[in-house]
């Protein structure tokens, strides 16, 4: 690389790593919700872990271009891992159990990544879907361990850090879930703004060219798939720990399908899409199912159809000015940073 190119790259990366005001505001608002909306911590908790789950899908779909219809596999594995660890009192500290659940899911992600790398979009759709279904069936059949179709009963989650009990109002649960999501977001942001993240995007845009310039394409895809699986596992573990319950639904096809919708609403490929999508989707689903408890999926379906017909780009256009503005800001600040 010429010195000029190197400087350019450094400048670009430095610019992307900068925080802009919108991001700060977003997280300040999230932090404020812990104090300002005590009556809504339960649904906010769901939004928070869904956001993390969608973020995990964004890592592979938005950054690496892998379409998955079975991301619930990792979510479910994490959920059951956390549930079993707590139920049999193997690991009592929720935070440690969370980490182990994430590792378990990441391991599964690593193993299955070799299957996913083969073939094109369609094959990937089927393989991911198949893995999720297979896991669901495994959990269903091993009822002595998982409780089968009745769900994992009798999970008691010990207080967080030995101090904060998971209360009925979901206060502890929300602060905990939000904190975990925030930390993992920071990690993802750091990774995606590194040269690794850039190379992923290059591979997504043109795999052949990326390969030609000497990028280790498969290895990077395996790495990001494993990372995303770990994130999904942690999201699942958060679900189990905050509700003290888990069931076969964690593996369901609908969960993977809904997740796609969440990410699409927010827009893929800039990390905030999953988070924004989670907020919008949950509130939409909650209000729709209150208005029409029996027929709300119709409107969700209509939304999906409309999004595609109008064009995803145009639907998520409402976030585009933000992204464009952020991009401009990046470059200017990056330039300033390298000059100084």
């Amino acid at each position: 690389m010429s010195p000029q190119a190197q400087a350019d790259a450094a400048q670009l990366l430095a610019g992307r790593a900068r925080w802009h005001p919108f991001e700060v505001l977003f997280w300040l608002a999230a932090a404020a919700s812990t104090v300002l909306l005590p009556g809504h911590h339960l649904i906010l908790t769901e939004i928070a872990w869904l956001a993390l789950f969608a973020l995990s899908l964004d890592l592979i779909l938005g950054y690496a271009g892998i379409v998955s219809l079975g991301h619930a596999a990792f979510f479910g594995l994490g959920a059951y891992a956390a549930g079993l660890l707590a139920k049999h009192e193997l690991v009592n500290e929720p935070l440690l159990a969370l980490l182990l659940a994430g590792l378990a899911a990441a391991l599964l992600g690593f193993v299955t990544s070799f299957l996913v790398l083969r073939g094109a979009d369609l094959t990937r759709l089927m393989v991911t879907l198949g893995v999720a279904l297979l896991l669901r069936e495994l959990a269903n059949k091993h009822a002595w361990l998982t409780g089968g179709a009745d769900g994992l009963q009798g999970v008691t989650v010990e207080p967080l850090l030995g101090r904060f009990r998971f209360d009925m109002f979901g206060h502890t649960g929300y602060v905990y879930t939000l904190a975990v999501t925030f930390v993992l977001f920071l990690v993802a942001r750091r990774i995606m703004n590194s040269s690794f993240g850039l190379s992923l995007q290059a591979m997504k845009e043109n795999p052949a060219r990326a390969e030609a310039v000497g990028m280790p394409v498969s290895r990077r895809l395996i790495a990001v798939y494993t990372l995303a699986a770990g994130y999904a596992g942690i999201a699942g573990a958060l679900l189990t720990q905050t509700t003290a319950f888990t069931s076969l639904d964690v593996f369901s096809f609908e969960r993977s399908a809904d997740l796609l919708l969440v990410l699409i609403i927010g827009g893929a490929g800039y990390l905030y899409g999953g988070l924004i999508g989670a907020v919008v989707f949950k509130l939409l689903q909650d209000s729709l199912s209150t208005i029409t408890p029996q027929y709300w999926p119709f409107w969700i379906g209509l939304l999906l159809v409309a999004i595609v017909l109008v064009g995803r780009e145009r639907i998520t256009a409402w976030t585009a000015p933000l992204r464009a503005f952020a991009g401009r800001l990046d470059r200017r600040r990056g330039a300033a940073a390298t000059k100084a």
């Binding site: 796609l260 919708l261 699409i264 999926p297 969700i300 379906g301 209509l302 595609v308 017909l309």
Partner: peptide, 8 residues
């Protein structure tokens, strides 16, 4: 996405 929407 489109066809899942139709299914719903």
């Amino acid at each position: 996405l489109f066809t899942i929407g139709l299914v719903f």
